[in-house]
């Protein structure tokens, strides 16, 4: 059978008919992902129509002379494709692209870190990849708005246009601790991440001592970072007592903002306090 095929396209309901010539199919250069289309054919007899690419592989049996219809949602993965119409010994081919739909449907929002100290310039970063309903990256530039808000600080907001489907930004952590919402929005879809803005190192570490029977009771003042944020409970404070060539140490966690321990009371003992790499005051115990 020596068939000549007429192929055209009906994209989004608009017919665009082209003739196939010399074994080469004439197709529209692009289709929109997921849209319905129809390809008229000419001639008579049976044939097989293929659309093949890295994204999809479709096959349709064709009655030549009848159009080949592809309902919405049949060809949806963006990419470069080959169309093949095979009938007996005759094969005609063409190439075309499927492009992402224009409407954003999904954001993949990579926000880092999930936790950081307060007052860090550009400490928070977010990258938003914008996809259509079929998980195709939308390459057409789109405005993405980023917003970082924390109950006790002013809102940081900026709009960035996507390039190659991605928009990114950097923002400062607030000066006050708390849970911040980091939102990326494009059109009417959005994605939210929660960023914990936590206190920094203790700024001033001060302990006091008072006698308690045979022991000395040591207690820190409420610990705060240099921005006045209370250092979180559980932070380890190390108390060290040195006396007569001997030493006692306790790693005590902050509870309700303070660390408190009892150590043996030796007159003349030196008692120091530290938390991480921050050193506090030193007391020479003389019984009072």
């Amino acid at each position: 059978m020596n068939a000549r095929f007429l192929l055209g396209a009906l994209v989004l309901g608009v017919a665009s008919v082209s003739l196939a010539q010399s074994g080469s199919l004439s197709l529209p250069p692009t289709f929109v992902a997921g849209s319905a289309f129809s390809l008229p054919t000419t001639g008579s007899g049976k044939a097989v129509f293929y659309i093949v690419g890295p994204g999809q592989a479709l096959r349709r049996d064709v009655d030549l002379g009848e159009p080949v219809s592809f309902p919405a949602g049949t060809l949806y993965n963006a990419g470069h494709y080959v169309a093949i119409l095979s009938s007996g010994a005759s094969t005609e081919t063409g190439q075309f692209d499927v492009v992402p739909a224009a409407q954003p449907e999904k954001i993949s929002f990579l926000a880092k870190p999930s936790r950081l100290p307060v007052g860090l310039h550009n400490g928070i970063s977010g990258a938003a990849y914008i996809f259509d309903a079929y998980h195709n990256l939308i390459l057409k530039p789109l405005p993405v708005s980023f917003e970082l808000s924390n109950q006790s600080s002013t809102v940081q907001a900026r709009t960035v246009t996507t390039r190659n489907g991605v928009a990114w930004t950097e923002m400062d952590s607030a000066t006050k601790q708390g849970s911040a919402k980091f939102v990326a929005r494009v059109g009417d879809i959005s994605s939210t991440r929660v960023i914990a803005e936590v206190p920094g190192d203790p700024c001033r570490l001060v302990m006091t001592a008072r006698p308690d029977g045979k022991n000395v009771e040591l207690q820190t003042a409420p610990l705060r970072d240099c921005g006045g944020n209370p250092v979180p409970d559980g932070t380890i404070v190390t108390f060290t007592e040195s006396y007569n060539g001997m030493q006692s140490t306790v790693d005590a966690p902050l509870k309700q903002g303070i660390a408190k321990v009892e150590m043996p009371a030796y007159n003349g003992a030196r008692i120091s306090v530290a938390s991480g790499v921050v050193a506090g005051n030193e007391i020479r115990w003389n019984g009072r």
């Binding site: 006692s248 140490t249 306790v250 790693d251 150590m263 043996p264």
Partner: peptide
Amino acid sequence: SADPVIEVQNQKF
């Protein structure tokens, strides 16, 4: 857990 707290007493080298 932040507990238990263990004191290291009377260390002598």
